[in-house]
Design a protein around this nucleic acid. Structure first.
Lengths: 140, 140
DNA sequence: ATATGCTGTAACCGAGATGGTTGCTTCATA
DNA sequence: TATGAAGCAACCATCTCGGTTACAGCATAT
């Protein structure tokens, strides 16, 4: 089990958009070259980033720019933008515990709390890092 | 993207083993009835729990018991036992960032640290809960 | 010694997600 | 009007997952 690489790609996209904004027209083709994948993959992920209000793409003319300042975009914002945690529940749960069994009856109530806690811990960690932090360490 | 229900099932199994140890012979069939799935699924997951040294199953005669005290088994132990985090890396990463691009060249070094931090935050949260904590709240 | 009941595997299966790819439409600018 | 790019939709192969059937191995009860 591994979290989709959509997340790392999304971060890569945002970094490219910001780093090269004055040098190149940052197209999906351009980014695909840096990420090492297909332009359509980039566009699909950019679509999600757009829906989340993080970037704007210029239809027709091409090119992309950030809608927020790098210091106002956290890794958590990015993770949520690309649906990293399905329906806000990182942990899956078996569907049909037996209500006639004491354990089956209570497992959900007992575990949910701790699963949510673990997820929150992770989210808070991601929320503590901004795109600006990454840009600083992105040597050119 | 969601973490496999193997984890919640594994917790369910361990709870059953402990809760019913004096009342029933806890077989994979018995547990499957409580979890609401197939006995083979239970046996597969029990196999992982066994490998991790958490439980012992009696071949031939049937029945299962814990090898550690419930207060010495954390949710993190269980998560690791069932391979919840593949190769210890929860976050996936795109394979082929372009080394000729400044961003592609540095993204791994820049992001890995924060991904590991997020995973650690989650693991620490899980490590703070033991099976005994759950047993207390498992009404009978 | 034999039958029984359970564990432990192996071999499948269908469903869903993932990353990838092609092809087409839409749109703004040169 | 031609060009280059975004934005879709439709596929595709591959993986993983939960599930299922089938069978071999083993310890106890009869």
């Amino acid at each position: 089990m591994q979290i989709s690489s959509r997340f790392s790609v999304a971060v890569h996209i945002l970094l490219c958009v910001e780093v090269f904004k004055n040098e190149y027209k940052v197209t999906s083709d351009f980014i695909a070259g840096s990420v090492g994948t297909n332009p359509v993959i980039i566009r699909k992920i950019m679509g999600k980033l757009k829906k989340a209000g993080l970037i704007e793409a210029l239809a027709g003319t091409g090119g992309t720019y950030l809608l927020k300042k790098p210091e106002d975009i956290t890794l958590l914002d990015i993770a949520q933008a690309v649906d990293l945690f399905e329906e806000d529940r990182l942990f899956g749960f078996h569907e049909a515990p037996n209500p006639n069994c004491p354990v089956g009856r209570s497992i959900h109530g007992v575990l949910d709390l701790h699963m949510a806690g673990a997820q929150t811990a992770m989210e808070e960690s991601l929320a503590g890092v901004t795109l600006a932090d990454l840009l600083n360490r992105c040597n050119r």
